[in-house]
């Protein structure tokens, strides 16, 4: 108990190192335990708070697990139809060019139903930030196969594993976007360890700075886990992601601005 009284002395406002940012609302997140969405939301909120952009930022929320994202970040929001977030964000940015506009989409939203909107928005070089959460599965609807599902990966609609002969190869949409002239900064990150969280945060901060300079589309892919869809514990799913997802979706910058 001597130790415990020492601990109480440490817990003082002056010694605070890390606290959940005020941009996050008090609503409890609807995500499964261990889901990367929560971490991604929080670091995005931290950047908005640290850069002082709470009243300047407009988010476009997708359809998918993160459909209720407007309940969790205390900024302006617009809900888009499934996959159409980049088109909606284009309109918002063109009408309100001084605002910071971002979309937050999963792989079903961005890489399946919204492929056309994504590619054309990036090809036009709209000054928006697209945050793409890739967990290789349709998490919200029960773990069906997505375009980003890995070869041989089991899902509820590919119970024997994804057979590339009949089901095709995983779509690396981030690589496609990086090859388009309109995109300015394209990177692939993850949020499963503290080091990766810091790198992702840095990438989001850079993207907000580029948007201030009207440079072009920034796309940040966050390779994430889906413990429920993959039928694993959160810790197992993070390990599985490191062993299987990262060889196919290697982390790092795909397109960096020439400076």
């Amino acid at each position: 108990m001597v130790e415990f009284s020492g601990i109480k002395e440490i817990i003082k406002p002056g010694n605070l190192v890390y606290k959940k940012t005020n941009i996050m609302t008090e609503n409890s997140l609807s995500y499964c335990p261990g889901c990367g969405h929560g971490t991604a939301h929080r670091i995005l909120a931290e950047i908005i708070g640290e850069e002082g952009l709470q009243s300047e930022t407009i988010g476009v929320s997708p359809v998918g697990c993160s459909v209720f994202m407007y309940n969790y970040l205390d900024i302006d929001w617009q809900e888009a139809a499934h996959g159409r977030a980049p088109a909606v964000a284009t309109a918002i940015k063109r009408l309100l060019p001084e605002k910071f506009v971002f979309t937050y989409q999963g792989d079903g939203d961005l890489a399946a139903i919204g492929t056309a909107e994504t590619i054309h928005a990036c090809n036009r070089g709209e000054n928006i930030l697209i945050i793409f959460i890739n967990n290789g599965i349709y998490g919200m609807t029960g773990g069906q196969m997505a375009p980003t599902t890995l070869p041989g990966m089991k899902s509820s609609t590919s119970p024997y594993g994804r057979d590339v002969k009949t089901m095709g190869f995983p779509l690396k949409i981030t690589d496609i976007v990086a090859s388009l002239p309109g995109s300015y900064y394209v990177t692939r990150q993850s949020v499963h360890t503290a080091a990766n969280v810091k790198k992702t945060k840095k990438a989001i901060r850079k993207s907000f700075q580029y948007q201030k300079l009207n440079k072009g589309t920034c796309l940040i892919e966050i390779v994430s886990n889906c413990p429920s869809g993959w039928k694993m514990t959160p810790v197992q799913s993070n390990k599985w992601m490191e062993e299987n997802m990262f060889p196919y979706y290697p982390l790092g910058d795909l397109k960096t601005p020439e400076e």
């Binding site: 003082k12 605070l16 890390y18 959940k20 997140l29 929560g38 929080r42 503290a194 969280v197």
Partner: peptide
Amino acid sequence: IGCANCAMVCPDGVITVYKT
């Protein structure tokens, strides 16, 4: 040691960290 690694990876942001 107050490194805040736990708070950074917590998906639900439930951890507050103090250091001295």
